[in-house]
């Protein structure tokens, strides 16, 4: 029946929005609150996805691990794994301007992609990892989809709540002070570096969690499952459009951008086959253009960070 199909589709969309919402929240800690440029979001996402899959899936002679542990352990492992990769990168790059962090995170994502492609014993090679368990996976299809959707939304809300608390605490106020006043930040010296590192690692852990949410939703993963640059880029647009520095903005951005992105696919799918392949790239072009337009005309996003929290022009509103 069409309506069931529609509901299933809506559930799917909702789940993906929830997952991207978690990613956007992770980026908000790094960029929105701390001003750190992470261009390798997809890398941390992939690490989380693979780790959680390997921890929870059943063993296979072709690859390592497959510990069949509870999903919650997988999620924790995903967060820890992403954090562990972020830590040394942050240690090395956070002393410099964010341009260096950007190139280093692009590099991390690239290396992670190389490892996953090359080390078949780790990633299951081209076939990837299958049989990843899903919470509520035993239920009937629609119900299972819906239950998982509810779970993702619950996780999103928990992450949101935890971050809001963290931001309201002295930690959050200090982060924003550091972001907005380089000089004052420099005067605080080593302490600043530590705070930034905490933000970077925390954000990466949240991205790893999003990867875990994704893999248990899809129940399988291959190295080609996500286009790293497009995924990274979508998250950036979500945050900037929604409002950097504002957690609700991040979630709003995830909703809007994912809907636009999926709708555009919907439209291009209707096109004749010859131009359909081109159409994918036209979509990428348009999403890039969208970023330029937002940066130019509404850099503060739809839900700007509450004024008063902002002490100086980090992303000053356009005149």
């Amino acid at each position: 029946m069409a309506s069931i199909g529609l509901i299933n589709y809506a559930t799917f969309m909702g789940t993906m929005i929830g997952i991207y919402g978690v990613l956007a929240l992770g980026l908000n800690i790094q960029w929105g609150v701390t001003g750190l440029f992470n261009a390798g979001i997809a890398g941390f996402f992939a690490v989380g996805a693979y780790l959680s899959a390997l921890i929870t899936a059943s063993p296979s002679p072709e690859r390592i691990m497959g510990w069949e542990l509870p999903v919650a352990v997988g999620w924790l492992g995903a967060m820890a794994g992403a954090a562990l990769i972020a830590w040394p990168i942050g240690r090395i790059c956070l002393r410099f301007r964010s341009d260096y962090l950007a190139i280093a995170t692009i590099g991390v994502a690239e290396v992670i992609r190389l490892v996953l492609r090359t080390e078949e014993g780790l990633s299951g090679g081209a076939r990837g990892i299958t049989g990843v368990p899903r919470p509520f996976g035993g239920l009937e299809y629609s119900l299972s989809q819906f239950a998982y959707f509810a779970l993702v939304i619950a996780v999103l809300l928990v992450v949101y709540w935890a971050l809001e608390r963290q931001l309201a605490a002295p930690w959050g106020r200090m982060m924003k002070a550091i972001r907005d006043n380089e000089q004052a930040a420099a005067a605080m010296g080593k302490n600043v570096e530590k705070r930034r590192l905490e933000a970077f690692v925390l954000g990466a852990a949240v991205m790893g969690l999003a990867g875990a949410l994704y893999v248990h939703f899809m129940r399988a993963i291959t190295p080609e499952a996500i286009d790293p640059m497009i995924a990274t880029f979508l998250v950036w647009i979500m945050l900037i459009l929604g409002g950097s520095g504002n957690n609700r903005g991040a979630i709003l951005g995830a909703i809007i951008v994912w809907i636009i992105w999926s709708m555009s696919e919907f439209i291009t799918d209707q096109l004749p086959a010859e131009i359909a392949t081109q159409a994918k790239y036209i979509r990428v072009f348009l999403i890039g253009l969208m970023l330029q337009l937002i940066l130019r005309f509404r850099p503060e996003g739809l839900l700007p960070e509450e004024s008063g929290q902002r002490t100086s022009p980090h992303l000053p509103p356009s005149r």
């Binding site: 001003g35 950007a102 497009i230 880029f233 940066l295």
Partner: peptide
């Protein structure tokens, strides 16, 4: 006139745009 990092972000998007034009 804005923080340089915004231009960095913009350039990442420009890269994608150039690539997709070539692909089309």
């Amino acid at each position: 006139s804005r923080p340089k990092i915004l231009t960095v972000i913009a350039s990442l998007g420009i890269g994608m745009m150039l690539r997709s034009v070539v692909q089309v």
